[in-house]
Design a protein around this nucleic acid. Structure first.
Length: 403
DNA sequence: TCTGGGGTCCTAGGACCC
DNA sequence: TCTGGGGTCCTAGGACCC
């Protein structure tokens, strides 16, 4: 066996949100539970101390499944599925609203627990991370005699540490790179460890569906299947020149490399945010004419929350953007880059007004969002700089006239 | 039964400058 | 007096991910 230059782990918490909820409601263990919906759906404790839960069948609205327990998945309920659709498949499943504060707490805990064993960690969101194990003593020292054994022992150590800190299980894939590890962590889920070398690609990776590769989404997946390529092995066997013809220089070449398990991206332990945003989907579609006041109010609220986020994270941004989604799911964005970075709700709201002027409102709205990009640290913004044009609080700014 | 909210990255065209 | 070639910034849309 050719020894890899790196050992990269991908750690994925098992049904993370649902598992955190089961710590709070252990009596639900084994049941079909779906996370999603509104705060109003939170369980209520009755006088006799027992709990009353919302059932999926009683849900009405536009929410989606955030996560589900494995019992719910057995009934065909998966992440991103509309709750109304999920209710058809599992009407008796229990519905719990998402509690992101709690999930963030457990997220910090599990990452700290991993860092005690292996400190080179790349954050990939609330419930997964990449870990570079190459220089972890238990891995490095085993290279000479039993590399795979050393890697597995460290993986067990990480899982034990996570379990002690959180009471939760996770699945770990360990391979020579991030691409393969991401796939490997799913091979033995939940609570599993999978170690793969490049030699395992033909037997363990090539039989998998093309969508198992991180970076092949619904569009590329459909196109590949349309072209007769169903498995990763099918892509690997395709002539690279043909892939490039079909998918373009960049993506075509990437597909070829990915199918052969090649990926040299480093584990990145720190990154600055690029943008911060807030958006909301309405309970019912709103008319720019009819619901003007309400839309103006919602936009004010979004700007206020975004300004809060910026202040809390100590960022300012030079580009303000809006996102509008109309009935029919047609999405439109408009950006406005300013001379001076903004932080205040009023300055954001003013720039939003400039963006809104460039949109035609001929359909009802389903969603509105605000984003601030081109971020700079708040400390780098000169207070002495001339103030950006501000909305006069005594008068409705003219941009409000659009709503 | 239509499809949340928070992100990143890529592409492609036009403006503008040298 | 019909028109090159970069580089960079801005904008809009879209794919993809958790």
């Amino acid at each position: 066996m050719q020894l890899p230059e790196r050992w990269i782990a991908h750690l994925d918490m098992d049904a993370f949100y649902a598992s955190v909820e089961l710590l709070r409601y252990p009596q639900l263990k084994g049941q079909a539970v779906v996370i999603g919906g509104r705060r109003a759906d939170a369980p209520q404790q009755l006088e006799d101390g027992s709990w009353r839960y919302a059932k999926l069948r009683d849900y009405t609205g536009r929410g989606v499944v955030t996560t589900s327990t494995y019992a719910a998945r057995d009934l065909g309920v998966f992440s991103a599925m509309g709750l109304m659709k999920a209710a058809l498949r599992a009407p008796d499943a229990i519905l719990l609203p998402a509690d992101f504060d709690s999930y963030r707490t457990y997220s910090r805990r599990f990452k700290a627990a991993v860092a005690e064993v292996a400190p080179v960690i790349e954050d990939r969101g609330i419930d997964e991370i990449y870990i570079d194990l190459t220089d972890v003593p238990g891995v490095r020292d085993a290279v000479g005699h039993d590399p795979l054994g050393g890697v597995k022992a460290v993986a067990r150590e990480i899982k034990n540490s996570v379990s002690r800190a959180t009471g939760l299980t996770c699945s770990i894939g360990i391979t020579p790179n991030k691409l393969l590890s991401k796939i490997a962590s799913e091979l033995d889920k939940p609570d599993g460890i999978s170690v793969l070398t490049m030699d395992d690609i033909p037997t363990r990776i090539w039989p998998l569906a093309v969508r198992k590769i991180n970076g092949i989404g619904p569009k590329a997946g459909d196109k590949l299947v349309q072209l007769g390529l169903h498995t990763v092995g099918d892509i690997a066997a395709a002539p690279p020149a043909w892939l490039i013809e079909q998918f373009g220089d960049s993506y075509g070449a990437w597909l070829h490399n990915a199918a052969h398990g090649r990926d040299n991206r480093p584990v990145v332990t720190y990154s600055e945010p690029v943008s911060i945003s807030r958006e909301t989907t309405f309970e019912r579609d709103l008319s720019a004419r009819h619901d003007k006041a309400l839309l103006g109010q919602i936009m004010d609220e979004l700007c206020a929350r975004l300004a809060d986020d910026l202040a809390r994270k100590r960022y300012a941004g030079k580009t303000v953007g809006i996102k509008l989604r109309f009935e029919g799911f047609v999405t439109v964005t408009r950006d406005q880059t300013l001379k001076i970075p903004v932080t205040s709700a009023a300055d954001i709201r003013h720039a939003v007004g400039l963006c809104l002027k460039r949109v035609t409102f001929d359909k009802r709205l389903r969603l509105m969002g605000v984003r601030v990009g081109n971020l700079v640290h708040a400390s780098e913004v000169l207070d002495a700089a001339p103030a950006a044009p501000r909305a006069d609080p005594r008068r409705a700014p003219d941009n409000l006239s659009l709503f």
